[in-house]
Design a protein around this nucleic acid. Structure first.
Lengths: 340, 340
DNA sequence: CTGAAAGCGCTTACAG
DNA sequence: CTGAAAGCGCTTACAG
């Protein structure tokens, strides 16, 4: 088990020697601490640049200071929508001195990832689409500044949340369908007890259906996130004598699969069936999809979450909850029925 | 700048006290070091479990030991192919004690990310699709065990590489087109000086074209990774009297956009034009795309890269270079011309 | 087989 | 305004 050799890196002591000052002086310059003369700061900065010094995150972490690194946890890497969130976080971070590392829940569990990230002494954590419950998240928030994206919780005070108005998403989809002449509007949802994001969308869907006097047409099918099961669910909604004429899908990927099932079943979209997705990911605009979708502005979500997290790290205690408003981007898949 | 409070975490000392041994004994158990009796190990493990102790990565990093964390750097989060690589890395890591954090090059540069990750004292680094040059990568490899995915370099010895046989990818696409009756086969490539992966694919494409006596039909258009530019490039290949009847695209996203452009231009795929993509991402199978694509097995790439990296960390010095063989997955977008 | 000592690169009080 | 001391939680030699 010989260790691969690593070059020695330049430390605060090297900088101090080069600048002809004490190493504590260097530390102060680094942290913008009080009581450093301009002259000293100048000298130190010159040496830092000359030697290419960069602070060791481990040393900072261990000595109780900030590491200036935050962690962002994503549920998976397959939904291109998450890239938008990441873009928002990145651009918000550009204005600060913080950096970020990502963790992606794939094989490992969210809990394992969280625990490995806290052991890194990160300054804060953003979790996207957490599946943890309220109490374990509050416990986590006691140890590290925390912001959640996509987790509607009644009244949490230990951490901040940033959310799309998911009930509004459901309403937007139904209203748009209704305006365009669709009546038998189903929702293809996710089989998940924890996903309150999904629940809100379902609530909005049901609310708008009732408001349009279509309460009797409410039909929600919940499928796991698995291609085969999604196909079966879509097929079910698209067959039989009482076939639906419109389907609101909880995410674009499911909507694209619904288009695929419709195509295989020789149903035309629109005409036989209208489809709306969610997230307005980059695949929606392709001519072969031309998928109407709800845009929840991942960039805004990321931006606001970052802002809140930095505020938390700098000392804010009172919880804040930010809501982003979705908008519908209309394309061919939900065109007015008469026109077709 | 008040610091948000953090709960004290349990340390090696707490464990030692609880188990009634010295703290160095605990450290030894943790590291599976020599000379620990079974009895002592037992006691310590019981206390570790009881107290829920987890080692501080910062402390490990600073004291020169392993952190048991590796970093993986991706060029972006938008290509679903990278999720396959990640899956391979995850499953390879499951059998080890290593964990991983991801870094995604989006707004920040690859260099900035690398530098922030090295300051975290990670045990090793996997970089996917690096745009750095050979010499700076060798310099990096002197400081930290390094494996590159998707970077063909003539003869590097400072680090390992894992690659798809990209020249073979190009050959596979051309041969398949030729077998199915296509002749005017163009390649829609990437405008990138550094991407040797792309260059290999171009080489394979040209080689196979010549081998099929179609050297005069060679046409490579290079476009930046930008939707508008890709559209223009695809339009160019699909218009004019000498319109191409087949296009090999360097990645699926570009191929899907090509399908879209063909649709808008009222060209049918196949029939008027055949299309092949690369990476066989999950969108290819949708009926509305039914896109033939080259599968380079991201999972294998990730798996092998991880294996090599762990070997490096444990002391291997001699470079290894692993090649994965691609296969073509045929779908409707490249069906035989006669049949159509 | 077990433990006490030194040190990693920083930060945070505390003295000058 | 500047510096010397203690300590963060570990690992790595080195003694018992």
């Amino acid at each position: 088990m010989a260790k691969a050799p690593r070059g020695k890196s330049v430390t605060i002591h090297d900088v101090a020697k080069d600048a002809g000052v004490s190493f504590s002086a260097v530390s102060k310059v680094l942290r913008n601490a009080y009581g450093v003369s301009e002259a000293l700061r100048e000298k130190v900065n010159v040496s830092i640049a000359k030697l290419g010094y960069t602070p060791s995150m481990s040393a900072r972490g261990i000595s109780g200071g900030r590491t200036f690194v935050i962690g962002v946890i994503f549920p998976d890497m397959r939904n291109p929508f998450f890239a938008d969130i990441l873009a928002g976080i990145s651009s918000a971070l550009e204005r600060t001195t913080y950096q970020m590392v990502q963790g992606i829940v794939q094989h490992s569990t969210e809990a394992a990832l969280v625990q490995s990230m806290t052991s890194m002494q990160l300054d804060g954590l953003i979790i996207v689409g957490s599946v943890s419950n309220s109490s374990s998240l509050s416990a986590l928030a006691a140890r590290i500044p925390l912001v959640l994206i996509g987790h509607h919780l009644p009244e949490v005070s230990a951490f901040d949340t940033v959310n799309n108005d998911d009930a509004e998403s459901g309403r937007l989809a139904v209203r748009h369908f209704v305006e365009n002449g669709y009546r038998r509007i189903a929702m293809l949802s996710l089989d998940s007890a924890n996903g309150t994001v999904i629940q809100r969308r379902e609530e909005g869907y049901m609310e708008a259906m009732k408001a349009a006097d279509l309460g009797n047409n409410i039909e929600i099918v919940r499928s796991p996130q698995n291609l085969r099961e999604i196909q079966v669910a879509a097929q079910r909604l698209l067959s039989g004598p009482e076939r639906n004429d419109a389907i609101f899908c909880w995410t674009d990927y499911v909507a694209l699969e619904t288009l695929s099932v419709a195509g295989i079943s020789d149903l035309s979209v629109p005409g036989d069936v209208g489809v709306i997705g969610h997230d307005n990911t980059m695949y929606c605009a392709f001519d072969q999809n031309s998928l109407t979708s709800i845009d929840q502005s991942g960039e805004q979500l990321g931006l606001q979450a970052t802002r809140l997290l930095v505020e938390r790290i700098e000392g804010r205690q009172k919880a804040e909850h930010f809501l982003v408003h979705p908008r519908l981007v209309a394309r061919r898949s939900s065109s007015p029925l008469k026109t077709v």
